[in-house]
Design a protein around this nucleic acid. Structure first.
Lengths: 230, 230
DNA sequence: GCATATTTGTCCGTATGTATA
DNA sequence: CTATACATACGGACAAATATG
């Protein structure tokens, strides 16, 4: 932070917020900020996002902010109601069912091949497990969830498809919205660390079919627990 | 649904004109117009969409138009290049491969169950076949393609998932971009009318596994022919 | 149910930065 | 390198819809 402050500080002073290094538009950066706030639960489901208030808070014009809103609405993180504004999405039990229907389709498919998972494929899986273990040891429940999702993102990535990666990323972002209407979102993920570890172990030993079955069990269990909370 | 109908049903009846009678915003209507133009090939891959020219042509302000562009860029139909504008997307051979990777994942999955396809599920499939046959008989090649895609959209819909429907719709829209860089897009679809008919026949007879295999053959064949054209 | 205040939807003008002929 | 065209972003305006007292 201190090291970067020198570099970006000068550029930021000269070129406003848009530095030469940062090749993204204000619209995209604002969308990124809001996306993060929503995913972290700082902006809670059902909450209205006021153009005036948020535009003022972030120091951007209404027009710019509205473009960001359009991006987020396309990601299903917010809903846009005509003449009423945008609201953080509130998911229904049917949404949960549907999200898991797609997860059960996409994630196991990544393990359908007969060839063992490559070392490059395993690395992000191990990293996610390690991050989850650390977060759990330090009692950071929310971070356990984040690492957990990174594990499953990495699982889907084994399919080697850019579009599947995108689909999976959006599914997991939506799923975050579910956690934020639960009582104790932090506790939800804890039990799954071991199950993910088991899946990873099976993958390392090349037992793809068992890994696939363990994954299916995991998904069925997680879905059932989420639905029970609704 | 029925339990909530008392609360939301009344409200929906009063305020629901929004979703039924009409009333999408200008932004969405403009996006819809552009989406159609792109899908039909009137706006060709690589073409730049000038804010000024299109805004003037459609009679909307640049701010409104830019919001529409954001939606389309999120659908991958256009690419947004910073400070250069938006362009109709041009797909690569890798894109084709990736699109079919996802198709091969999603479409056969809709036939994975053991239960025969319901009558409601078969109806849109038959309608699509009939539309394709009509278009073929009248030499409307482009419409054969449209009907063909509707058939596969209906196939994916058998999964009963709103999100899969959306994913499929976007995949097929992207795929249209591929056809528009080919020499004779109209001719591409003609041979597949019979194959779709075959799939439908197998589904009607409840032979799901054979239908699934025929579908996989279809997809492999279509992918190969598209890649050959690249 | 009404009158008022607030907020969104849309358009316009403009200043600045960026890309390109 | 300059000139030109264009995108980016801002702020103001006003009508229309919605929320509030």
């Amino acid at each position: 932070m201190t090291a970067r402050a020198d570099d970006t500080g000068v550029l930021a002073a000269l070129a406003g917020d848009r530095s030469l290094l940062n090749r993204s538009s204000t619209v995209e950066r604002v969308a990124e900020i809001l996306r993060e706030r929503i995913i972290e639960g700082l902006l809670r489901p059902g909450e209205r996002l006021s153009e005036d208030a948020i535009g003022r808070a972030l120091g951007v014009s209404r027009n710019t902010l509205r473009e960001s809103f359009r991006l987020l609405s396309h990601e299903r993180l917010v809903v846009h109601e005509l003449n009423r504004g945008v609201f953080v999405r509130t998911l229904s039990a049917e949404d949960v069912t549907d999200l898991y229907r797609v997860r059960k389709l996409i994630e196991p498919a990544a393990l359908d091949g007969d060839v063992p998972v490559s070392e490059e494929g395993l690395r992000p899986l191990r990293a996610a497990i390690a991050a989850a273990a650390n977060a759990a040891a330090e009692g950071r429940g929310a971070d356990v969830g984040t690492a957990n999702m990174r594990f499953h993102q990495a699982l889907a990535a084994l399919a080697g498809s850019a579009r599947i990666d995108t689909i999976m990323r959006q599914l997991l972002a939506e799923l975050r919205l579910v956690f934020h209407v639960m009582d104790r979102p932090g506790e939800f993920h804890a039990p799954y660390l071991d199950r993910n570890r088991e899946i990873l172990g099976l993958l390392e030993r090349g037992e793809l079919q068992q890994a696939r079955q363990a994954l299916l069990d995991y998904l069925a269990d997680a879905e059932a627990r989420l639905l029970a909370a609704y």
